[in-house]
Amino acid sequence: MQLDPGTEDIVLLAWARLLGFGDEAFAAAGGRLVRIDDDAAVLTFVRLFGHSALVGPEWAVEGAAAYADAELAEYHTLLQLSRARGGHGLGKAYLSFADDLPTAQPSEDIVISTAPEEAARLEALCPPDDNNEVGLSNMDKTFVLLHGTEPVAGAGYEEWEAILGHLSVLTAPAYRRRGIGTLLAAIAGHEALGAGLIPQWRAHEDNTASRATARSLGFVEAGTQTSVYLPARP
């Protein structure tokens, strides 16, 4: 499965804006884009559709010049590059996008709540690490499946640059491995498409289940985002 070339161009436009470049930066670039931000709280390297960009302090940009794109995309490279400056946390994630998504077809009648408090109730049932990665209650739109009065799974999207609908999915531990998260992701993805957004999926490189869910829904892996936190300058 491939994305429409027009979708690729729009995604690159969105990420150019997210990273602080001009709208045509990726189209005009003959090589790696770099932007020096000495106050950056995160050192970020992105690869998308054969393009690449690095944003971070001057010392990081200078140090990164010795590495190929494939090396910078690896988490251990950014850690090595930033260790002396206190770099830590985050990691490498795969970025996927979709032109369309399959219609969600639940096998029985279901109850979906869009009330923000239901997303918070679902998070109370899930491990903190999952909540931190997903951030469901911070999404612009959320869709939570209720079993009686109990929230069991939810998905939502956050609008990025009025172009991307960044999706997240969270399922209570007792209800995992039943396909519920995939159903909710399809619902949220269709809502994002209906709002004129391109659905985006981001999965940590170690989260094989999340990547598999994205593929099952028709998302196409288009690149990576690799980042490390940087301590605030004194």
Rank of each mutant, 00 (worst) to 15 (best):
I163C: 09
T224N: 04
A68M: 08
V11W: 01
T208M: 11
R211F: 07
A209R: 11
F45D: 00
G56K: 05
A209D: 08
I110W: 14
P234H: 02
D69E: 14
I36F: 14
V11I: 15
R202A: 09
A84F: 14
L33H: 10
P231D: 09
G56C: 13
S168Y: 01
L78V: 03
P173M: 06
S137A: 13
G86Q: 10
H190V: 00
L125V: 05
A40G: 03
W59D: 06
L217A: 07
Y229G: 01
T213I: 11
R211W: 15
H76K: 15
A70W: 00
R32T: 07
A29W: 11
P116T: 08
R32H: 04
H76D: 13
E74S: 08
V55W: 06
Q105M: 14
A41M: 11
L13G: 01
L184R: 01
R178I: 09
E62S: 12
L145G: 03
W201D: 03
K141N: 07
G56Y: 14
A98S: 10
L43A: 03
S52Y: 12
A29Q: 05
D38A: 12
L170V: 05
L43M: 09
E71G: 04
P151G: 03
A124M: 07
L193I: 03
A222Q: 05
L167K: 02
E71R: 09
L217T: 10
D100F: 02
T114S: 14
A214W: 07
L33S: 12
L13K: 13
G86Y: 14
Q80C: 07
A222D: 00
D100R: 06
V144T: 02
L170D: 06
N132V: 05
S168M: 04
R121G: 01
A27S: 10
A162H: 04
A66F: 08
D140A: 05
R176D: 06
A53K: 02
E117S: 09
F143V: 01
A93M: 09
G56I: 07
A192Y: 04
E108T: 15
A119Q: 10
P151L: 09
P57K: 00
P57W: 08
F26T: 00
G56P: 14
W15Q: 02
P116H: 10
K92L: 08
A115N: 08
A188H: 06
T213M: 11
G31Y: 04
I198F: 02
H204L: 07
A41E: 13
G223S: 00
T182L: 02
V228I: 08
L122V: 06
I180H: 04
A65P: 07
R176Y: 09
V61D: 11
A65M: 10
G89S: 05
R17E: 14
G20K: 04
G165M: 02
L81F: 12
L78K: 11
S216P: 01
